[in-house]
Amino acid sequence: MNQATAMFIICMMIPLIVLMAANILAARSTEDREKSSPFECGFDPKNTARIPFSMRFFLLAIIFIVFDIEIVLLMPIPTMFMTSYSPHILITYTLFIIVLIIGLIHEWNEGSLDWSA
């Protein structure tokens, strides 16, 4: 048996062992009294389950997620500059920052960031 086959078998066995151990350790009783109750979260079943939420909060949360992803995209830039300085990296980085600033100005002018209104 060559080394590649042995590594393949090991790479297949380790996840299977972890999955089986997780299933064994996570096994729970299905006859739990609280699991069989219709409302686990404490809501009164006589009232409506739908409650209104603030659309402004939802939009702010979406904006936060978008900017959070953008920060993740900006994180490797200093490492890229340290390893190899290329004008293409600088141009791409500058254009990305310009697009972010334009998006921020648009959201500011639209009023999406104004929480007090």
Rank of each mutant, 00 (worst) to 15 (best):
M1P: 01
M1S: 10
N2P: 03
Q3L: 04
A4P: 03
A6P: 01
M7D: 13
F8W: 07
I9M: 11
I9P: 00
I10R: 10
I10K: 12
C11Y: 09
C11H: 04
I14R: 09
P15W: 00
L16M: 12
I17G: 03
I17K: 01
I17C: 07
V18F: 15
L19K: 00
L19T: 03
L19M: 03
M20N: 05
A22E: 07
N23V: 07
N23Y: 05
N23Q: 11
I24L: 11
L25Y: 12
L25H: 05
A26Q: 07
A27F: 13
A27C: 08
R28P: 00
R28E: 15
S29Q: 10
S29H: 08
S29R: 11
E31P: 01
E34G: 01
E34F: 09
S36H: 02
S36K: 11
S36W: 00
S37I: 07
P38E: 11
P38G: 04
F39I: 15
F39Y: 15
E40C: 09
E40P: 06
E40D: 13
C41F: 07
C41S: 09
D44N: 15
P45M: 05
N47W: 14
T48I: 07
A49E: 05
A49Y: 06
A49L: 10
R50I: 15
R50V: 14
R50D: 11
R50A: 13
P52Y: 01
P52I: 05
S54P: 02
M55A: 09
R56N: 09
F57I: 09
F57A: 13
F57T: 11
L59V: 12
L60K: 04
I62P: 01
I63G: 00
I63S: 07
F64G: 14
F64R: 10
F64Q: 14
F64M: 14
F64I: 13
I65W: 13
I65T: 14
V66E: 13
V66S: 12
D68E: 04
D68M: 05
I69V: 15
I69K: 07
E70F: 12
E70K: 10
I71N: 04
I71S: 05
I71D: 01
V72T: 10
P76K: 02
I77T: 07
I77Y: 01
P78F: 03
P78C: 04
P78L: 08
M80E: 00
M80Y: 05
M82N: 05
M82D: 00
Y85A: 09
Y85S: 08
S86D: 14
S86E: 08
P87G: 09
H88R: 12
H88S: 10
H88T: 04
I89H: 00
I89R: 02
L90G: 01
I91E: 03
I91Y: 03
L95M: 15
I98L: 14
V99R: 02
L100C: 14
I101A: 14
I101H: 00
I102T: 13
I102D: 02
I102C: 11
I102V: 15
G103Y: 02
L104K: 02
H106P: 02
H106D: 00
H106L: 04
W108P: 01
N109F: 06
N109R: 15
E110N: 06
S112Q: 03
S112T: 08
L113K: 00
L113N: 02
L113A: 04
D114R: 13
W115K: 08
S116I: 06
S116R: 14
S116F: 11
S116C: 05
A117N: 10
A117L: 07
A117T: 11
